Measured scan of single mutants.
Amino acid sequence: MGKITFYEDRAFQGRSYECTTDCPNLQPYFSRCNSIRVESGCWMIYERPNYQGHQYFLRRGEYPDYQQWMGLSDSIRSCCLIPP
């Protein structure tokens, strides 16, 4: 099982949303994503809903700024857990 936490502000500040399963639409939970903490598993995150747009592969670790995962913007709208 994986676990990823999205934060609206840099350095793990602001409103957060924790996810443990695939989520095709993160828009209801936060308006922007400036930092991420991957506590377990590997995740693919996407800039648009329904697994569309630019995608980024994240391993376990801390990403205090969206540029840390080579993001082009602070828009993350869907995510899925990559099976081991």
Score class of each variant (00 low, 15 high):
1 M>V: 06
1 M>G: 04
2 G>S: 07
2 G>P: 03
2 G>V: 10
2 G>F: 03
2 G>A: 06
2 G>T: 07
2 G>Q: 10
3 K>Y: 07
3 K>Q: 05
3 K>R: 11
3 K>N: 07
3 K>T: 10
3 K>V: 13
3 K>M: 13
4 I>Y: 00
4 I>S: 07
4 I>L: 06
4 I>W: 00
5 T>A: 05
5 T>Q: 05
5 T>H: 05
6 F>V: 04
6 F>P: 00
6 F>Q: 00
6 F>A: 00
6 F>L: 06
6 F>N: 00
6 F>G: 00
7 Y>F: 14
7 Y>P: 00
7 Y>R: 00
7 Y>T: 00
7 Y>N: 01
7 Y>K: 01
8 E>L: 05
8 E>C: 08
8 E>S: 08
8 E>V: 05
8 E>G: 04
9 D>R: 09
9 D>V: 08
9 D>H: 15
9 D>I: 03
9 D>G: 13
10 R>H: 05
10 R>N: 13
11 A>Q: 15
11 A>K: 14
11 A>Y: 10
11 A>C: 14
12 F>V: 02
12 F>S: 02
12 F>H: 04
12 F>C: 12
13 Q>D: 09
13 Q>K: 15
13 Q>P: 01
13 Q>S: 10
13 Q>Y: 10
14 G>Y: 02
14 G>P: 01
14 G>D: 02
14 G>R: 04
16 S>K: 05
16 S>H: 15
16 S>D: 03
17 Y>P: 00
17 Y>N: 06
18 E>H: 04
18 E>R: 07
18 E>Y: 08
18 E>V: 10
18 E>A: 09
19 C>P: 10
19 C>Y: 10
19 C>G: 11
19 C>S: 08
19 C>A: 11
19 C>N: 03
20 T>R: 11
20 T>G: 09
20 T>C: 13
20 T>P: 11
20 T>M: 10
20 T>V: 08
20 T>F: 13
20 T>H: 01
21 T>P: 15
21 T>D: 06
22 D>K: 09
22 D>A: 03
22 D>R: 06
22 D>Y: 15
22 D>S: 05
23 C>L: 08
23 C>Y: 11
23 C>K: 07
23 C>S: 14
23 C>F: 03
23 C>W: 06
23 C>A: 11
24 P>T: 10
24 P>N: 06
24 P>M: 08
24 P>C: 02
24 P>L: 11
24 P>I: 07
25 N>D: 10
26 L>N: 06
26 L>E: 01
26 L>Y: 01
26 L>W: 07
26 L>K: 01
27 Q>S: 12
27 Q>T: 12
27 Q>W: 04
27 Q>R: 12
27 Q>G: 11
27 Q>P: 12
27 Q>M: 13
30 F>L: 05
33 C>Y: 05
34 N>D: 10
35 S>V: 00
35 S>H: 01
36 I>T: 04
38 V>D: 01
38 V>S: 02
43 W>G: 10
43 W>R: 06
44 M>T: 03
45 I>A: 15
46 Y>C: 02
46 Y>N: 14
46 Y>V: 02
48 R>Q: 10
48 R>P: 13
48 R>L: 12
48 R>F: 12
48 R>T: 11
48 R>K: 10
48 R>D: 11
49 P>S: 13
49 P>G: 14
49 P>M: 13
49 P>K: 07
49 P>V: 13
50 N>G: 05
50 N>H: 14
50 N>E: 12
50 N>I: 08
50 N>P: 04
51 Y>E: 15
51 Y>N: 15
51 Y>I: 03
51 Y>A: 14
51 Y>F: 10
51 Y>W: 05
51 Y>C: 15
52 Q>C: 05
52 Q>E: 06
52 Q>M: 12
52 Q>P: 00
52 Q>G: 14
52 Q>F: 08
53 G>Q: 11
53 G>C: 03
53 G>T: 09
53 G>H: 08
53 G>A: 11
53 G>M: 06
54 H>R: 01
57 F>M: 13
61 G>R: 01
61 G>S: 05
61 G>V: 09
62 E>L: 12
62 E>Q: 15
65 D>Y: 05
69 W>R: 15
71 G>D: 09
71 G>S: 03
73 S>P: 02
74 D>N: 06
75 S>D: 06
75 S>F: 06
75 S>W: 08
75 S>C: 14
75 S>A: 08
75 S>I: 13
75 S>Y: 09
79 C>R: 02
81 L>P: 08
81 L>Y: 05
81 L>I: 09
81 L>C: 09
81 L>H: 04
